[in-house]
Write a protein that binds this DNA or RNA. Structure first.
Lengths: 191, 191
DNA sequence: GGTGAAATAGTTCAGAA
DNA sequence: TTCTGAACTATTTCACC
């Protein structure tokens, strides 16, 4: 995908405000609103860009962590990716080249719950076949506190979490040291 | 910031499509468009959410890397944060607790240029006071290829890059092994 | 990419809950 | 304080150039 000057102006503006009207985009580019509409629609339909609500981690008191993982092979890696595909607490999982072959960004609504996804049965590290892992709690997110948090707010009515690890029998959940999975009816958090 | 059921529905929908009309949001929540307008404006004005264009890393052939850094103290860390504040290639810098105290997400438009920001004078690791660093090129971004890339498309007219390291005298830039900083007039990339 | 008219959507504000 | 309804303004859409 290549962008010309006009596309660049459009995308730049939509980065600042994704709801900018076609009219305004027209003024910025010197096109009519129909002209930019076609550009914007092309960018969206080709999935070159997506216009989406990001959440302010600071405002919602989200706690973020980076998890580094070394798996014993590609099967474990694939199993992990599949298992956490719909986990609301996983923002991104990168597969990487190097000593660690997987780096994940995870999020939770308090420190206790972040601890759960660091060590409990529902954590990334709990998967069989992980040789080594490191967990880095994030103190501060620099440059922009806005992040594309996935699915945190949807359903809340499942009886089994997307990762298939039930919260109910978990000691941390029982003793109120974890708010549980946001996708299930067991969720006790504020979101 | 706390969200009620209505806010949650609104934000959920805006995550899927940030340009959803107030009318549609009204239908989803059972409110009138005025009702949701207030909600949406509150969310935006309080900076709880931001609606923004994300770029598809795959579509634009972006190369991503995770950089782990251990600094010799808080001064180095602050200096680094300040220096890369406006670097278009830095997506996020997290300050963390643990063996590494800084984790950055960086982006480039080809492998050669990614290599530059891994080792050249304009790289994060070039800062004085770094004890140790690791660089993990990302093979694959899972779950969503969309990322809030900052400032990549703006200006392109500076004579000195935001990090203050000139591209012109750099050997990699001269020998076409780096497209240069996207914020400057020396930029030779496709974006 | 642009036009112009029709259709949708957004805004304002007085008043109800 | 929060939402509604109706009138008004702005924006978007559609078929066609």
């Amino acid at each position: 995908m290549k962008l010309d000057e006009v596309d660049r102006k459009i995308v730049s503006q939509l980065q600042i405000d994704g709801r900018t009207t076609l009219e305004t985009l027209g003024k910025i580019t010197g096109y009519t609103n129909m002209g930019v509409r076609k550009r914007v629609n092309n960018l969206l339909e080709s999935e070159s860009i997506r216009i989406s609500a990001l959440m302010n981690l600071k405002r919602f008191n989200f706690f973020l962590a980076v998890v580094l993982i070394e798996t014993d092979g590609p099967e474990t890696l694939q199993r992990l990716l599949k298992r956490f595909e719909n986990c609301p607490r996983v923002v991104y999982i990168f597969t990487t080249i190097g000593g660690f072959n997987m780096i994940a960004l995870v999020v939770a609504e308090d420190k206790e719950t972040l601890e759960s996804i660091s060590m409990e049965k529902c954590s990334l590290r709990s998967e069989k076949g992980i040789r080594r892992s490191e967990f880095y709690p994030v103190m501060d997110v620099n440059y922009s506190p806005f992040m594309p948090i996935r699915r945190y707010l949807a359903h809340k009515d499942l009886s089994v979490p997307p990762c298939r690890v039930n919260c109910k029998p978990c000691a941390r959940y029982k003793f109120e040291r974890c708010v549980g999975c946001p996708a299930t009816k067991y969720y006790k958090g504020h979101l």
